[in-house]
């Protein structure tokens, strides 16, 4: 049914949040996973950057025979290259992550690609349920594990959310053997990016609860008030009915009962 589909997954070089080391990006890997589940190893995985980058082998280790790399220098605008490539090569579905883990990580890539190709873009998808008669049934991830059903015509671009199925393990052997097919590609320098100054993230000050105190008494109280959460309410020696009622009231109050 879906085997003749042309699915392209775009991957980037991720970055571990703790160690800062390069890795396969979690969302991109999920995009590859989704592509592989739809099209087996017919999925085409595309990267714009340096084919010598070892991290790409972590994607290949998911069981890909090859990975196509549009050779680009770090200063180049990868989105332009990817857009040109996709305009030339027919694809039915283009899968990306939501946001890159390194670089500007603005999350604009899928939007710019969709705009350039003139295709619809579905954001933050959790799954593609089916593709039939040129139409895809998609589940979009909403906050708190909720899902929305969406229908879209092919071709389209979709960004894959963290709620999608976790990417399969990357195995060393296949990763080492996969072919990294390097394609020389025209580079468009990202001149605007060159103006950016990048530095390690500063810690953002936590917003304090500002006390609009007009009187000394209020200020005193604000300064000496006990912080909340020290010891909750304890209900002891009461019949279970009342205890249950207390819990139930809290659940209602919090609005978690639907």
């Amino acid at each position: 049914m879906t085997s003749d589909l042309n699915i392209v997954a775009l991957v980037s070089i991720g970055q571990h949040p703790k160690s800062g080391r390069a890795r396969r990006a979690e969302q991109d890997a999920r995009a590859v996973e989704l592509g592989m589940r739809l099209a087996g190893d017919n999925v085409q995985v595309l990267h714009a950057g340096d084919a010598a980058e070892e991290t790409l082998r972590q994607y290949a280790g998911m069981g890909l025979k090859s990975l196509r790399v549009l050779q680009q220098s770090p200063q180049a605008d990868a989105v332009v290259a990817l857009g040109d490539y996709l305009a030339e090569h027919r694809a039915d579905v283009v899968l990306t992550g939501v946001r890159a883990e390194s670089g500007e990580s603005s999350g604009m890539a899928p939007y710019l690609l969709a705009e350039k190709l003139g295709w619809p873009l579905v954001t933050r998808i959790a799954d593609i349920v089916s593709i039939e008669n040129g139409e895809a049934q998609i589940l979009q991830a909403l906050p708190r594990g909720q899902r929305r059903a969406i229908q879209v015509r092919l071709p389209f671009v979709a960004s894959v959310d963290m709620a999608a199925q976790v990417a399969r393990q990357s195995a060393f052997g296949p990763g080492r053997r996969a072919e990294l097919e390097s394609l020389p590609w025209v580079e468009t320098p990202d001149s605007e990016r060159a103006q950016f100054k990048e530095a390690p993230a500063r810690k953002r000050p936590k917003r304090l609860k500002k006390v609009k105190a007009t009187t000394a008494a209020e200020r005193f109280k604000a300064a000496t008030a006990k912080s909340q959460g020290t010891g909750g309410r304890i209900i002891k020696d009461q019949p279970p009915t009342e205890q249950a009622q207390a819990i139930f009231d809290l659940l209602l109050e919090e609005g978690v009962l639907r």
Binding site: M62, R168, Q169, A171, P174
Partner: peptide, 8 residues
């Protein structure tokens, strides 16, 4: 299983 299959 781990290095070829990726199945830990």
């Amino acid at each position: 299983l781990t290095m070829e299959k990726g199945n830990t």
